[in-house]
Write a protein that binds this DNA or RNA. Structure first.
Lengths: 346, 346
DNA sequence: CTGTTAGCGCTTTCAG
DNA sequence: CTGAAAGCGCTAACAG
């Protein structure tokens, strides 16, 4: 195995000191263009790429961003084979952004409910020394983690988190998206629009509910709290919530569910009651995971890739010493109209 | 930001030399149990976790495994939102295995068709210095990559690759799985069983076809080559292949498709021709991505997680100096009977 | 069985 | 503008 080419080889090849090479590859000032050129040529010729480990040892940066996901939830998603693509979208946004800046994203799983969260996160940080940490729900709102990161002075981003606090909050406007979906249904002519909430452990759940309340409140017929059914993002809770809505004296003709799985549950439950979409019932879901596509459900698109990309970018810039970075970033949500929505039957 | 705890702190705390601490954390011999105990106590007390970067610098191992996936194909999968969960399954198997051994898996994307493959892979290796590389199709069979890795003397595993050659080949028995699926259909009473091939760029395609040929050849009615339609794993090719099969003078009553997407295409194409599954046509697919679940297709399960886990384990053990590791590993395939298969109509 | 010494490949700091 | 020296946290090789 031929020994790897190091900065020394490049220095020798270009006839300069290590330091000069270091300056050139880090785009630092104080190197004459001629010398710069010579160094770059040597780098290209030798195919030199600096070692992350050595950079980390010598300097203060590791060129590593750590993405922290909830262990149980993630593994459960992988095992179920339900095609939840949160991780993929996050990789797409985060990894590619990192790549563009010479960074790597390293994916870690930590149990948010464990009493060892602190030790687990500390351990990962000690092993990796990341320059920044990307937190996904429910970690984004876990004070055991955000607190630790704050204390360590390690930059971090909270994805899909709207709460105030340390770190960069990167989210979409869930309330606005919810209102948008409701307005879409109202626009189609629906009057009684039901809502299925998500688990309160997730910050987005509250925002989605708020948006619903707001949009319904502003509608001609006003808000009817009985049209709100509790869910927790699980399929079962979606079934129960839909059953409750269907049992209402005057059942809704449209339903907005806080995630795809519950929306799917709602559709199937309705079907079991002889109601089919979109003829008898319109349904809109949140998130737009592959399930929404397969089930042909109209959905609000959660821009996970974009949020991850923004998070990565903020962390990288923050590490590079940039100040004046926005503490709260809002990414536009999307909307995918599909076959589960239509005007109500006359 | 409190300075991180290093091996020095532990040594001081335990009243021993750095080296002794190093020996203990690496489970090396020649440390008295009493001392070992003292060191472990210090480690626990201080919450010490060794820095990967420093270990890499000092020693010969980096505790990093690099998983190489095809860039275009992966990003395309992520963007499409079709729920292909190859990456997820690979992370599940590989990451968790790495974790169990104090390793990390780092995910990299490289264009298999680019003329810069060599430079790209070299660059990633120079930056990361992984102890081993996991290759997924079509990289597994790309001589530009396997050759480079061989030359560098870097251990690597080829997932879903059956070809002879350097590195650890880890696969399932695609031919056997194919034969198993065919036998399943024959067992249900089908006589004319069609087959849709996969892209020849992937080694599994050939094996799957072989298994089909073999099982059909051994059947009462023998092999009929006209029942084999060409595909390339894409939806469109599945449609075309199914059209071809349906245009046959005596059309098949069952079809085995080399992946889920083509099976899905086959089902939809059949439906457009007024044939519904499983009444008029049985379909079995390969891979068992979430699509198979959503479309309720009987499928051969490709054990990606297990293959990745085996690959990771082999590489880690190889790095640890173990010899006598199997150069070819076979992981059991699975089978998920679902609603797309039944006995043919009388 | 244990400790000492020398790096690994970089960046930081400080001289020139 | 450039270079030389020191050191990051660890392990390998060697002494004891």
């Amino acid at each position: 195995m031929r020994r790897a080419v190091t900065i020394k080889h490049v220095a020798a090849e270009a006839g300069v000191s290590l330091q000069t090479v270091s300056r050139v590859i880090n785009n630092e000032p104080n190197v004459r263009p001629v010398v710069q050129e010579r160094v770059r040529a040597a780098v290209a010729k030798l195919g030199y790429v600096p070692s992350l480990a050595a950079r980390r040892m010598g300097g203060s940066r590791s060129y590593l961003l750590m993405a922290l996901n909830d262990r149980d939830r993630t593994i459960e998603g992988w095992k179920s084979g339900e095609g939840t693509d949160w991780v993929d979208q996050m990789l797409m946004g985060g990894m590619l952004k990192c790549e563009a800046h010479g960074y790597r994203m390293i994916f870690e799983l930590v149990d948010t409910h464990s009493d060892h969260v602190d030790a687990a996160v500390r351990g990962a940080i000690a092993a990796l020394h990341p320059d920044g940490v990307i937190l996904t729900p429910p970690h984004s709102e876990n004070p055991a983690i955000t607190g630790l990161l704050s204390r360590l002075g390690l930059p971090f981003a909270r994805i899909a988190s709207i709460a105030e606090g340390d770190g960069f909050a990167v989210s979409m406007d869930d309330a606005k998206a919810s209102a948008f979906a409701v307005d879409h249904l109202l626009g189609l002519g629906h009057v009684r629009v039901g809502f299925i909430t998500g688990s309160e452990e997730y910050a987005v759940s509250g925002a989605r509910l708020d948006g619903y309340r707001q949009a319904m409140g502003a509608s001609a017929h006003g808000l009817d709290e009985t049209l709100i059914a509790r869910g927790d993002f699980s399929y079962e809770s979606g079934v129960a919530a839909m059953e409750a809505l269907l049992a209402l004296p005057s059942r809704p003709t449209a339903v907005l569910a806080s995630n795809d799985r519950m929306a799917h549950a709602a559709l199937r439950t309705a079907k079991r009651h002889g109601l089919s979409a979109p003829a008898d019932l319109s349904v809109i879901s949140f998130d737009n995971t592959p399930l929404a596509r397969f089930a042909d459900m109209t959905a609000v698109i959660q821009p996970i890739a974009e949020m991850s990309a923004v998070a990565a970018e903020l962390l990288i810039r923050s590490t590079a010493g940039e100040a004046e970075l926005p503490r709260q970033s809002m990414v536009d949500f999307g909307f995918a109209p599909r076959g589960s929505t239509a005007a109500p039957k006359a």
